[in-house]
C-alpha cells in the first residue's frame, strides 16, 4: 500500500495536522500495522517537496511547532491517477513455494508435506480473519474478505500443485 497516496487521500477532505493524519490512517487502514510518527513526518516532507501538499498553517505549542497540511491541485491529480491505476498482482508467494516444491522433489523429500504445511499455515491465518470478520463491523468484514479471497487463491494454487506433483516430479527429474 502507498502510504503517501493514502495520506494524500485523507487530506482531500480538508487540512489536518500530522498527528490527526496518523490517527485517521490507523483508524481506517492500520488494523495490523499502525503508522509510526516518523513515517508520517518523512512522508509529509516528501509530499511537501514534490508540491503535492502545502503548509496551511503553523501552531506553536508546548513542544515542537504543529504544521497543518493541505493537499494541492497537483496532489489531487496524483491521488486520482493512483486510484485509477490497477495494482500489480504480487506472485511472490507462489514463486517461493514453487522453488521449495521443486527443491523437495529434486532432493527426494516429500513435496506433499510442504504443501500440507503451507495449507495449514494459510488456514491458521484464515481462521483468525474469519473470526475477526464474524465479530467485526461491515468495514472489517470487507477488509477480511479481501484478505481471505487472496489466501484462498494461494490455496487453490497449492491444491492444483499437489494434484500435479507426480507430473512435476517427472519434469524436474529430466
Amino acid at each position: 500500500m502507498s502510504i503517501g497516496h493514502t495520506l494524500l487521500g485523507l487530506l482531500e477532505s480538508g487540512p489536518r495536522h500530522g498527528y490527526d493524519l496518523k490517527r485517521a490512517f490507523d483508524e481506517k487502514f492500520g488494523h495490523d500495522r499502525p503508522l509510526h510518527y516518523g513515517q508520517v513526518y518523512s512522508t509529509m516532507s516528501r509530499l511537501l517537496k514534490n508540491g503535492l501538499v502545502e503548509v496551511d498553517g503553523i501552531e506553536p505549542g508546548g513542544g515542537p511547532e504543529r504544521k497543518r497540511y493541505a493537499i494541492t491541485e497537483a496532489g489531487i491529480t496524483d491521488v486520482q491517477r493512483w486510484l485509477a491505476t490497477p495494482e500489480k498482482p504480487e506472485p511472490y508467494l507462489q514463486s517461493t513455494l514453487y522453488t521449495k516444491v521443486v527443491l523437495a522433489l529434486l532432493t527426494r523429500r516429500d513435496a506433499g508435506d510442504i504443501l500440507d504445511n503451507q495449507r495449514a499455515e494459510h488456514l491458521r491465518l484464515m481462521r483468525i480473519l474469519t473470526d475477526r470478520k464474524r465479530k467485526g463491523d461491515l468495514a472489517d468484514q470487507l477488509i477480511c474478505d479481501h484478505a481471505l479471497f487472496h489466501l484462498e487463491a494461494d490455496l487453490r494454487w497449492l491444491e492444483l500443485t499437489a494434484a500435479r506433483l507426480d507430473k512435476l516430479a517427472e519434469v524436474v527429474a529430466q
Binding site: 500440507d116 495449514a120 488456514l123 481462521r127 474469519t130 487453490r156
Partner: peptide, 22 residues
C-alpha cells in the same frame, strides 16, 4: 473449500486414503 474450512477449529487432510492431523 478453504474459506469454509476456516470456520473449523482444526483440519484433517486426507490424501490417498491416509489422514493427516495437521
Amino acid at each position: 473449500e478453504a474459506r469454509v474450512a476456516a470456520y473449523s477449529d482444526r483440519e484433517i487432510v486426507v490424501r490417498d486414503g491416509k489422514s493427516r492431523d495437521m
